[in-house]
């Protein structure tokens, strides 16, 4: 049984101009100790799908799913008290902006203590010991002094370490990290990613890392979900995703990476923009930007083939870099878009 088992997750927001489907048809199965990544451009629904899983969306959100279970418990059937015990305890989350997720009015120690009190309990002294332990575990120098610090007295990297300390304070079995390093510099990012992976290994918790950075995906995750405009477009293990993307969007995204473009004069691009709430096309959502699109794509929404383990949301999933789409014939020769198998420059 998977630790996190989600099928057909959809989230619609009530907006002034009607319902907006921010997430539709997301499936994700995370086993104990696995490292997953959800990747996609902004607005693709990465955060919303995980916030829905955590039950942290505002009331304007309508969340539906065919299945939404954590460790065998149906998350949709839980009482709010049962849910609170799981969320923040067995399943916890850290957010992109470490500075704004910490309360500026309380010391780091008070905030960690609050977390421990809620989920683990223990005497004041035990909780203090645990807090010091946690700060040391996430690599904060001089925890005894730092525990009395206020958030504004810390750098972005230190704040993110504190957020991680809080998130792991109750020994979660699943940690969801939403762009945990996007606001940080690369040398600090490397430290934080290493910390997350080390904690994951030490504790055996499962980790879902939300990111828009293909480099971060390649260096951290074992399995990847790719999202586009609220849809999950494919799901693969990381090596096959980079070697053999199944969805044309993934293929195009990978070849737009500067480091994969080789010596070509110009970068391969994806024309157009991600559709917004009001300009979603009919048929496949990617069709206006897809170089393999056919009339069929413009009219009929694709569904994953039942026997496709990647659950590719495309009428013509790529096989070894080749699209079976009738529109593919003319593309390969005259389109400068590179093949995803191109060697990476060291």
């Amino acid at each position: 049984m998977a630790l996190l088992d989600i099928e057909g997750l959809s989230v619609r927001f009530k907006t002034s101009s009607g319902l907006f489907a921010a997430v539709e048809g997301v499936d994700i199965n995370v086993d104990r100790g696995e490292v997953w990544s959800i990747v996609g451009e902004s607005g693709s629904g990465k955060s919303v799908s995980m916030l829905a899983t955590m039950g942290l969306l505002p009331w304007t959100a309508q969340v539906t799913a065919d299945k939404m279970a954590f460790d065998g418990q149906d998350l949709q059937q839980l009482s709010s008290r049962q849910r609170r015990r799981i969320v923040g305890g067995e399943m916890s989350m850290i957010f992109q902006e470490p500075m704004s997720s910490l309360n500026p009015c309380f010391t780091v120690g008070t905030q960690i203590d609050e977390m421990i009190k809620q989920h683990l309990g223990g005497s004041r002294k035990e909780r203090h010991e645990r807090a010091l332990d946690l700060l040391a575990q996430v690599g904060i120098p001089d925890p005894a002094r730092r525990i009395k610090a206020y958030p504004h007295q810390m750098s972005g990297g230190m704040s993110q370490r504190v957020m991680i300390a809080m998130a792991i304070s109750c020994n979660p079995r699943l940690l969801i990290a939403d762009e945990p390093t996007t606001a940080l510099d690369v040398t600090i990012q490397a430290q934080i990613l290493e910390l997350l992976l080390r904690l994951q290994e030490d504790t055996g918790m499962a980790l879902i890392l939300i990111t828009h950075d293909m480099g971060v995906v390649a260096e951290t995750a074992k399995h990847v979900v790719v999202q586009y405009a609220g849809r999950q477009v494919e799901k693969q293990d990381v090596k096959s995703l980079f070697a053999n993307p199944r969805h044309p969007y993934t293929e195009a995204l990978l070849s737009a990476l500067p480091e994969r473009a080789g010596d070509q004069d110009r970068l391969p691009t994806i024309p157009g923009v991600v559709p917004g709430q009001h300009d979603r096309p009919s048929g496949c959502l990617f069709n206006p930007r897809c170089r393999y699109a056919t009339e069929h794509c413009r009219e009929v929404e694709p569904v994953p083939a039942p026997d496709d383990p990647a659950r590719t949301l495309c009428h013509y999933p790529l096989e070894d870099g080749v699209s079976p789409s009738p529109a593919a014939a003319g593309v390969a020769r005259d389109n400068p878009q590179s093949s995803p198998h191109r060697e990476v420059r060291p």
């Binding site: 990297g157 430290q191 971060v216 090596k239």
Partner: peptide, 24 residues
């Protein structure tokens, strides 16, 4: 050197040991 080695590379076959930069 540290900056370069801290930069993630979009190639899952190239997970390498980094020159880790301590502190801030």
């Amino acid at each position: 050197q540290a900056l370069f080695s801290a930069t993630p590379v979009a190639d899952p076959n190239r997970r390498r040991e980094r020159v880790h930069l301590k502190g801030e």
